[in-house]
Every structure is written in structure tokens, then in C-alpha cells.
Design a protein around this nucleic acid. Structure first.
Lengths: 206, 206
DNA sequence: TAGATTGTTAATCGATTAACAATC
DNA sequence: TAGATTGTTAATCGATTAACAATC
């Protein structure tokens, strides 16, 4: 039952890219798209796209391509974004504020439901349409709300401690903006968004 | 001569991760670190680390590990972050402001040198310690300054047009926060930081 | 029907790992 | 010296690509 454990992560990691491109294609009015057209838009080979998608079912029609609406629907289901996930934000500096106000989450399956900071000067202030709460209340509040996703926007020095707290509170997926590798239990996922890493990946070639 | 073209990108992409971890290790006072210790901190196998590093030279000492300082120095050279790169920022909304004020760039090799927006209400205002400039001046200003790195923090609808402008102005590396795939010439690098993509990669497993 | 495109197989390609002689 | 760890080789593992019968 669980989660088709046979799908390689490298394939899973491409699905959100496909989904995003399909949503753009739909906005343009496309109702059907071939693996070749999709591949050209994403700089991915059409064979790869067909192989990836075929792992989840037979969504395509020979001679026509993939029905955009149905494929969007299916990918959302497989990715579990056919619902809205509540997210807890920790760290409400400049970046935390920007995240709290970012409109792009809601339309794509995520809602920042709570924001915490440890700085007394920030607690009680507003971030987006949230009130910043005391981090000492995090565990109880997150547990009670059953929140499974956390975003860390603190300085690096605080990030591991925050991660431990989130895991203790029941969070199972962490988006980490702090520039540090996190150590978490095996059943917890972490994704990293330190902007300097991709910059340094590119300067190698400059 | 050029840029050892034989190093696979997957190896290059891990170097900034190694560099970051080594800088943390140095802060802790370590002067030497084994591939095993480094691997444990990063959840990477020690064999992989040794293989990756050996592509650039013989930095390790048998029986002791890698001298932290020397390896940091070498990695910075290989990644070309043994200097400070000027960066141009386009789009000064909430995210653009947060980026303009982020302290983490300067210490790791990057300086946002200019910020542009197309909104007349924003032009002339302040972002970090920069004055926001009219995007119509971008090409000339960036060309004259010889800036090679751009950051796009505009809405998705504007991002491709901005990318074209940056490429025209001589930019060869783009960090794209907008939720859209960019099409650029072969000799231009793009890295993506749409936060929804990693979130959706994780919800698959929830 | 004719043309186009899928899903899938087999072949290729590339990355990771295990193991160990060399050596600090 | 003895113990530890590197750099490297060969083996394993996994991902991508090419090609095509099936079929819309």
C-alpha cells in the first residue's frame, strides 16, 4: 500500500517541474501536449518524460499526447498536492516576512498557518496576515494542529535546534533556508534553499 | 586550458556543500578533517567525498585526513569564489528586498551591486543599501559594469523577458526565484529556487 | 487511412560503492 | 612502529537514451 516505494526519487523530483509546466500550458489554453513539446519547454528529453510518467499510469494518447487537465489532476494526486498543506514558519526576519507574504504558496497547495520567532521584540508583531508567536509555544501548537511541514528561515546557528524542535512536534518535511546541513531522523525529509550554493555552482563555469 | 571540462557537473554541484561544511568545521576550530567525518556531517559516503576531491588534486594526508584551511582555499579557487562577484538583482518586491538585505552573500563571495524594477513607484526607493533603478537602464549599466551574474525576483510572467535582457547585457549565470523554466543560450547557466518545487517533492512522501 | 506519438524494451551511459595498496 | 586514512581501481548499481511495435 504505502507509497509505491519503487519510484526512484530522481523521478519524483521531476514531477513538480512537469506539474508547473503543465499548469503554464493550461493557462495558455493548451488541452493536449506531447512529451516532445513538454520536453522542449523544460530542456528534458521526451523519452525521459514518457518514461517518468509511465511509472504512474498510462495518461497519454498515441498520436495526440497527454491531456493537460487530466495529467495535472493525476500529478497533483501523486504528489499529494490535491489538497492544501498547512506549514509552520520559524524565523521572521526579512526572509521570513517575504515568505509569510508570498502569494505563490496558496495557489499551489501550501498555506503558512503559523509563524514563530524567539526574539521578544518580534513576538506579537504581524507577518503577512499572521501574528508572530513565541517559539516556546511551537511544540504544543504544531502538535495540536497536526502540522507536518516546517520552513526554517533563521540564522544558521539556530537552525539545527529549530529542526530538532520541529521533528519533536511531529513535522516530517522541512524546507531549510539556513545555510547549514541538518541532521534529522530517517523518516524526515529536508530540502535546502541556501541561495549561495547555486551561485557557487555557477561561478565554477564563469 | 579553459575549465577542466572533464569534471562531471554532479561533482561540481557538491563542491559548494563541501565548502560550506568545511567553513563550519573551521569555525569549530578543526584544522584537519577526514572524509568519514565530513561525510557523516553531510550524509554523503566517505568514498564519494574522496573521489570528488581527488579530481582536483591530492589534498589529503593518509592517516590524518584533509587540512581544513588548505582545502577551503583550494575549493574556493576551483569554484572561483576566491574573489567577490558583483550581482544584479531584478525585481524588488518582498523577496527582492529580503535578498538585497541578506548578509549571507558578502561573506561567501557575492555582492548585490545593482537593483532594478520596472515599477515607477519603486524606482528611486531604497533596497538594502542600494537605490532601485529603472529596468530600462539595466542593459547599459550591467554591460558597463561587466556584471556576469543576475538574480530574478520578479513574478513569473516577467521572468523570461528579464532573462533575455540579462543575457543581452552580458550576464552568464542566472539565479531564478520566479516559478517558471527559463530558456537561455547554451553558454548561460540557470539555477532555480522556486520554493514550491522542493515542498512538492516532499509531500510525495507524506 | 496516414501521421503522430505513446509505452516499453534493450542498450548505453554515467555515478556510486567497496576494497585495498600506498603512505602519512 | 602501528594505526588511520588517502587515492584509485574494479565492480556494482542506477539512470538515460534510442528505437520501435502498438495504437489513437
Amino acid at each position: 500500500m504505502a507509497k509505491k516505494p519503487e519510484i526512484p526519487h530522481v523521478v519524483v523530483s521531476r514531477l513538480p517541474i512537469y506539474l508547473r509546466a503543465l499548469e503554464h500550458a493550461r493557462q495558455e489554453g493548451l488541452t493536449c501536449i506531447s512529451s516532445q513539446e513538454l520536453g522542449e519547454r523544460l530542456s528534458i528529453s521526451s523519452a525521459q518524460i514518457r518514461k517518468d510518467l509511465s511509472m504512474f499510469g498510462e495518461y497519454g494518447k498515441q498520436g495526440r499526447g497527454y491531456p493537460v487537465d487530466a495529467l495535472i489532476h493525476a500529478l497533483r494526486q501523486h504528489l499529494h498536492v490535491d489538497r492544501v498543506w498547512d506549514v509552520v514558519l520559524v524565523g521572521v526576519g526579512d526572509l521570513g516576512h517575504a515568505l509569510a507574504r508570498y502569494k505563490g504558496f496558496a495557489e499551489r497547495g501550501f498555506r503558512i498557518a503559523m509563524a514563530f520567532d524567539k526574539d521578544p521584540a518580534k513576538i506579537g508583531t504581524t507577518a503577512g496576515d499572521l501574528t508572530v508567536e513565541d517559539i516556546r509555544l511551537l511544540a504544543r501548537r504544531v502538535q495540536e494542529a497536526g502540522i507536518k511541514i516546517g520552513m526554517i528561515a533563521t540564522p544558521a546557528a539556530a537552525a539545527q535546534e529549530v529542526a530538532n524542535l520541529l521533528v519533536f512536534a511531529g513535522v516530517r518535511a522541512i524546507l531549510n533556508y539556513a545555510p547549514i546541513h541538518l541532521t534529522v531522523p530517517n523518516d524526515v525529509r529536508v530540502e535546502y534553499l541556501d541561495p549561495v550554493i547555486p551561485l557557487q555552482r555557477m561561478t565554477y563555469y564563469l
